[in-house]
Design a protein around this nucleic acid. Structure first.
Length: 125
DNA sequence: GCCTTGACGGCAA
DNA sequence: GTTGCCGCCAAGG
């Protein structure tokens, strides 16, 4: 395939790659910033992932609550106004928590590196 | 145009 | 095993 658009395509803005991954997060699953960063070829730039989501469009914001840090904690829960809102959304999707604001990654972790293929181009919305 | 901050992660001490 | 620092890249002041 002569796909000019793949996950590690340099012609695609980093933030846009992050948005694409977030949009593909299945309902009832969670992922981490580091996993996404590594998948898009950002390596250790997990910080950018969070920063990208801070300026994300509304459609991505709808799925951003499924993105947590490496320990499954609701890092910037206050970005939605209150972490309880985020927790409620996750619980409604069937996500279980090992703590008040810490999800059970061992049970719901969705790793793009495992579930997706770099050769499979994003929707490129 | 330069410096600081930022939804984090990994490694070193 | 825990705490702290540095690194990553981008955007705002």
């Amino acid at each position: 395939m002569t796909d000019s658009t793949h996950w590690t395509d340099d012609s695609i803005p980093f933030m846009q790659r992050v948005y694409a991954v977030v949009r593909l997060i299945p309902e009832g699953r969670v992922t981490t910033y580091g996993r996404i960063a590594r998948f898009v070829g950002a390596g250790r730039s997990a910080r950018m992932v969070g920063f990208a989501l801070h300026n994300c469009p509304d459609d991505v914001s709808e799925r951003a609550h499924r993105v947590v840090n490496r320990i499954g904690e609701l890092s910037g829960g206050w970005s939605w106004g209150h972490p309880a809102i985020m927790r409620g959304l996750l619980e409604d999707e069937g996500i279980t928590f090992i703590d008040e604001y810490q999800v059970n990654l061992d049970r719901h972790l969705w790793d793009p590196n495992e579930e997706l293929d770099v050769d499979q181009p994003p929707p490129t919305k």
